[in-house]
């Protein structure tokens, strides 16, 4: 009785899952399973490092799990296996299985260290933007101009995200990943972000840019990226450090445009603010 009920439960759930899998893969394919390649040289290099590490791990798993599975199948008592009780120590294999991992690790550490040094280079930026996290949104101030943007969750997402709102998230474009004012950056130019926070710790993350850096009160963190010249577009991310009740509701949306369009946008935005030209961005840094 018990067995059949449990069995049925198991069967239904396995079938249910199997039913969902093609859906999961069919919906948007690879994007749902793996890290995005992204649109900066850093994000592409990170993707390559990630895949290299993944395949190394898969390789180790095949060997180690293979030996284990061999034992599980062929060294069973039920098959009459007799234990070899003398097999308790072997300096030779122990040296090998200490040394080989060291070599494998070194082969992963060297490219990782190279990439780390490369992507932490913040020298000679062409565009500087101060990014200030707050509960719950982001402020972007363009250094050298008076342009300043406050970027919060879009009204449509906000309405749908209320408890018992009755609005289906699929009916909202880019639910929880859309903002009222996007931050605009030029493609093909090195953009440096100077990231801080006015209240608690936040973290600015856009997967397609390969950039994640914490926004910490009292600190200004630097991070740089250059979006490939042929990849203008809209790139979305989220805050990745728990920052209270609104943590899920402070997305980041970057609009990457051509340098000419960027200059035009900057100019237009600046003119539209007229009187703001008088005060410097530094003065407004902590006055959200």
């Amino acid at each position: 009785m018990k067995r059949t009920r449990l069995g049925r439960l198991l069967a239904t759930s396995v079938l249910g899952l199997a039913g969902r899998l093609p859906l999961a893969w069919g919906a948007s394919g690879w994007d749902e399973l793996n890290m995005p390649r992204g649109v900066t040289s850093a994000s592409r290099s990170i993707y390559a490092l990630h895949m290299m590490a993944l395949w190394v791990c898969v390789g180790i798993a095949v060997v180690v799990f293979g030996v284990m599975i061999w034992s599980l199948i062929f060294h069973r008592k039920a098959r009459g296996a007799v234990p070899d009780v003398t097999l308790t120590h072997s300096t030779k294999v122990e040296v090998v299985w200490t040394a080989v991992p060291v070599i494998i690790l070194a082969s992963m550490a060297i490219p990782a260290a190279r990439l780390l040094l490369k992507i932490n280079n913040n020298a000679d930026p062409q565009v500087n933007i101060r990014v200030t996290g707050f509960q719950w949104g982001w402020r972007y101030q363009y250094v050298g101009s008076d342009v300043s943007i406050i970027s919060k969750l879009s009204a449509s997402s906000n309405a749908a995200s209320q408890l018992h709102s009755g609005i289906s998230p699929t009916s909202v474009p880019h639910y929880l990943l859309s903002v009222d004012h996007k931050v605009v950056v030029p493609v093909g130019e090195k953009v440096r972000l100077l990231i801080t926070s006015v209240d608690v710790i936040h973290s600015w993350w856009v997967p397609d840019l390969g950039v994640k850096r914490d926004a910490i009160p009292g600190y200004i963190n630097e991070v740089s990226f250059t979006i490939a010249a042929n990849r203008p577009g809209i790139y979305r991310g989220q805050c990745t450090e728990l920052c209270g009740r609104g943590h899920a509701y402070m997305p980041i949306v970057v609009r990457a445009v051509t340098p000419a369009a960027y200059q035009a946008w900057l100019k237009q935005h600046s003119l539209s603010r007229g009187e703001a030209a008088a005060h410097t961005p530094a003065a407004t840094l902590t006055s959200t």
Binding site: V64, V67, M68, S71, P83
Partner: peptide
């Protein structure tokens, strides 16, 4: 490295054992 040593030792313990 030491974690690997532990896993390899467990695998080697099962190797040519009489498993149930």
């Amino acid at each position: 490295v030491p974690t690997g040593v532990k896993v390899f030792n467990w695998v080697a313990t099962m190797w040519r054992g009489s498993l149930s």
